[in-house]
Amino acid sequence: MSPIRESRTGRMLTPGLVIGTVGALFADALAVLGGVPVSWAAVTAVALGLPLAAFGVGCSVLRARGVLRSGAFAPVALYWLIAFPLARLVQDVVTRLVLDSRFALPPQLLGFLAYQALISVGFAIGFVWVQERMWRSG
């Protein structure tokens, strides 16, 4: 792979990876502040960080290919309206599975997903902000 192509690929993937890492760090910090053991907080961080990074990379790729237009917020918000609740659902299920050794969906699943969808708009704003700053600086 040429250095130019590697640089472009890295610039395309970095915002998604950054947003997943930042999301994981916030989840970890909130869990620790909430009084859970550090090992539990680490599970929470990884269980959220990995899906956020994967969805973030997907969003970055779609924006780079023109599927989600740059400069238009609504398509990115719609993407995260679906992706963020799914990432949180993965986090919740994986955390229960690792810490409690049982597969279980969150209680009141529809309410859980609806609340996460509301939060997704703020997450989409942050994602666009991070991505546009990284692309402009590169």
Rank of each mutant, 00 (worst) to 15 (best):
S2E: 12
S2R: 14
P3I: 10
R8F: 09
T9P: 06
T9M: 14
R11S: 02
M12S: 13
M12Q: 11
T14D: 00
G16T: 10
L17K: 08
L17N: 03
L17T: 05
V18L: 14
I19F: 07
G23W: 07
A24T: 04
L25Q: 05
F26E: 10
A29L: 06
L30C: 02
L30W: 04
A31C: 07
L33P: 01
P37F: 01
V38N: 07
S39Y: 08
S39W: 04
W40F: 13
W40S: 14
A41V: 10
A41S: 07
T44V: 15
T44D: 15
T44F: 15
V46I: 15
V46A: 00
V46T: 00
G49E: 07
P51F: 03
A54G: 14
A54I: 05
F55A: 09
F55D: 00
F55E: 05
G56W: 02
G56C: 06
G58N: 05
C59I: 11
S60W: 04
L62I: 04
R65Y: 09
G66R: 05
G66E: 01
G66V: 01
S70A: 14
S70E: 15
S70H: 13
G71P: 02
G71V: 10
A72Y: 13
F73Q: 09
A74L: 14
P75F: 01
P75G: 10
V76I: 14
A77P: 05
L78G: 00
I82Q: 10
I82H: 11
I82R: 10
A83L: 02
A83K: 04
F84S: 14
P85H: 05
L86K: 00
L86P: 07
L86E: 09
L89Q: 06
Q91H: 05
D92N: 15
V93F: 11
T95N: 00
R96L: 12
V98D: 09
S101W: 12
S101I: 07
R102H: 11
F103R: 07
A104T: 08
L105T: 08
P106Y: 00
Q108M: 15
L110T: 14
F112C: 05
F112S: 13
L113M: 10
A117N: 03
I119A: 01
I119E: 06
S120K: 06
G122K: 03
F123N: 01
I125K: 01
G126C: 10
W129N: 08
R133C: 07
R133N: 08
M134C: 01
W135N: 10
W135R: 07
W135Q: 07
R136F: 15
G138I: 06
